[in-house]
Computed example of a mutant assay.
Amino acid sequence: MNDLPTKISLGTATPGGGFPLYGDAAAAAVNETDPSLLVQTKNTAGSAENIRLLEADELDMALVAGEPAYEAFAGIGRPTSNLKIIAAIYSSPGMFAVRGDSSAKSVRDLVGKPIAWGTRASGITLLGKYVMDGLGLDRESDFEPHFLDKAADGPVMLAEGRVAAQWGAGIGWPGFTAITKAGGRLIGLASDDIEKIRTKHNFLKPIVVPAGSYPGQTEPIQAVGSWSYILGRVSLDEDMAYRFAKALDFAHAKLVERVEQGAETRPENTLAASPNLQRIHPGVLRYLADKDVDSIA
């Protein structure tokens, strides 16, 4: 009899970003909840590499931001991907962070300035490209772009004055937490900017960052963004996906204790954030049906 747990490899991103924070928390919560599973996280270059590793069957599951997932599913700049959604994990509103002594109040105030956009392979960095494009700006030619080796480098560059702003996304994003703890502040979008962006890129959704989401943030911030996912390789066993989805659901309280963004990791959100049912892994669909999540046939 084999009592060894089923190992699941979970790709995250570079140290210092939101994906390693979330991935480690999710792995620990799932492993505690279902000892028959052993989720092991692996640092990667981020969403773009995670898609490649999943397609090569070198990872079982991986965290992928909404924009790279959208491009992969739609076949934008690459062949259409058939990777499957295991869970929608959290929404990612894109924003800039500046130092407390910055005079910048809007995106337009940052045009021509040095910006830390994140790592090249990060979905957050790609979100910045789409948001700027929706505003009629180019992420590289209308700013002085800085692309990072590690997500954690950005807040240091901002603190030292080497960049005027850090682009990032999410609620509880580590880079923004570090910047706002040091007295920095966040810059979102005006309502007409959101409308303009969504006219061009309607897969981006309006998201409000509640007041108090970050240190010193006294007002809600308007932004746009998308849902990040845990995606699974196409060949992932149906039973494994079912067991993982069930454990992640049952581990919800443990997950939220470890990472605030885990509050959005619910089966209902997986259904709502998926482009269609065919994109959801069959094992996860079976769990959603067992749980009687709305609209599952």
Rank of each mutant, 00 (worst) to 15 (best):
P79T: 10
A56C: 05
A48M: 15
I85Y: 09
I51M: 11
M61F: 05
K84V: 11
I76P: 07
A87V: 00
A56H: 00
E67Y: 10
E49C: 04
I51F: 05
R52V: 09
G66P: 03
F73L: 14
A62Q: 06
N82R: 15
A69R: 07
Y70N: 07
A72G: 06
E49M: 06
V64R: 09
L53G: 00
I51R: 09
I86N: 10
L63A: 04
G77L: 14
I85M: 13
L63S: 09
A69I: 03
E49Q: 15
A65R: 10
N50K: 02
I76D: 10
A72E: 05
D57G: 06
L83N: 05
A65N: 11
A48H: 09
A72K: 01
S81E: 03
I76A: 12
A69C: 04
A87G: 02
N50R: 04
E71Y: 08
L53F: 02
A48D: 11
A74V: 00
N82M: 12
I85Q: 11
E58D: 14
G75I: 12
L59S: 01
I86H: 07
A56S: 06
L83G: 04
R78V: 12
I76Q: 06
A62N: 03
E71M: 07
P68L: 07
D57N: 14
G77E: 13
E58K: 15
R52Y: 07
A72W: 07
P68D: 03
T80L: 10
Y70V: 03
F73S: 10
A69T: 10
I51H: 12
E67T: 10
L59M: 08
A74F: 08
A74Y: 08
D60P: 01
L83K: 02
L63C: 12
A74N: 11
G77W: 09
L54Y: 00
M61E: 08
D60V: 09
E58P: 04
L59W: 01
E71L: 09
L54A: 00
D60A: 12
A56P: 00
N50E: 05
L59E: 02
L54H: 00
G66I: 06
L53Q: 05
S81P: 06
L53K: 03
N82F: 07
S81L: 11
I86A: 14
E55T: 01
G66M: 06
G77M: 07
L63M: 15
A56Q: 09
L54P: 00
D60E: 15
I86T: 15
A72D: 08
I85N: 13
I86L: 15
E49N: 06
R78P: 04
M61V: 06
F73H: 13
A62E: 06
E49R: 10
A65F: 14
D57Y: 01
A65W: 14
L59I: 01
F73V: 08
P79L: 05
P68G: 09
R52I: 08
T80A: 14
R78D: 12
A48G: 04
E67A: 15
D57K: 05
A48T: 12
A87T: 06
M61N: 04
T80V: 14
L83P: 01
V64L: 05
E67S: 08
A72V: 03
S81N: 07
E49G: 03
L83H: 07
F73R: 13
I51E: 05
